[in-house]
């Protein structure tokens, strides 16, 4: 199961944990200890995390949680992963107020003032991680997956196809 074959055959290939934790440390300042109970796998362009166990030899459809998408640069954290690990972030964080968080949860874009670096950010509301946002040139674009968005209010109707 070399890296090459995993991409071709679409199988889960074990991944050295430092390759994963380094990226979360760099972007969000999340300590590698946060991931200490997990092992990691790569399948195609996604990285998955699962509790640290010996996996029986089976053919898997999913192995734990898909935590990163490395299809494009920069890599993108999933909203599911941020909701678990994002609360340990020390940088590239945006806190929203109630009105802003509604727009975010509906999948919308909005102007937000922040000193975050350009790229993916952890979005909070009242201490809870809402999910992943893309921050660029003063604009925050929600990356919440469609099936996990709030139904649009009348004003935010543009957000939902």
């Amino acid at each position: 199961m070399s890296q090459k074959s995993s991409r071709i055959r679409n199988v889960f290939e074990p991944l050295d944990s430092s390759l994963v934790t380094r990226r979360w440390q760099e972007r969000f300042g999340i300590s590698e200890q946060v991931f200490s109970g997990c092992i990691f796998f790569r399948k195609a362009r996604s990285i998955w995390a699962i509790s640290d166990v010996d996996l029986p030899a089976l053919s898997y459809e999913a192995v734990g949680m898909r935590i990163m998408n490395c299809k494009d640069r920069p890599w993108k954290p999933t909203t599911s992963a941020l909701q678990i690990f994002g609360r340990y972030a020390t940088k590239n964080i945006i806190h929203l107020n109630q009105e802003e968080s509604m727009i975010f949860l509906e999948g919308g874009s909005q102007v937000i003032e922040s000193d975050c670096e350009i790229g993916y950010v952890v979005v909070f509301y009242r201490g809870d991680v809402l999910g992943c946002g893309l921050y660029s040139h003063g604009k925050l674009v929600s990356q919440i997956p469609k099936e996990r968005r709030m139904a649009s209010t009348i004003k935010g109707a543009e957000c939902e196809a």
Binding site: G37, C38, A49, I50, S51, V53, L55, P56, A57, L58, S59, Y60, E61, A62, V63, G64, M65, R66, T78, S80, Q83, I84, E147, R148
Partner: peptide, 30 residues
């Protein structure tokens, strides 16, 4: 039916579940 299963696992923050797609009558090994 795998899609809602995966989606619920991810939304609920589950990290100890792996999904397989065998016919349960022939699930191969324990």
């Amino acid at each position: 039916r795998v899609a809602p299963l995966r989606s619920n696992c991810e939304r609920l923050g589950v990290l100890n579940v792996a999904v397989t797609r065998y016919d349960g009558r022939n699930f191969p090994r324990g």
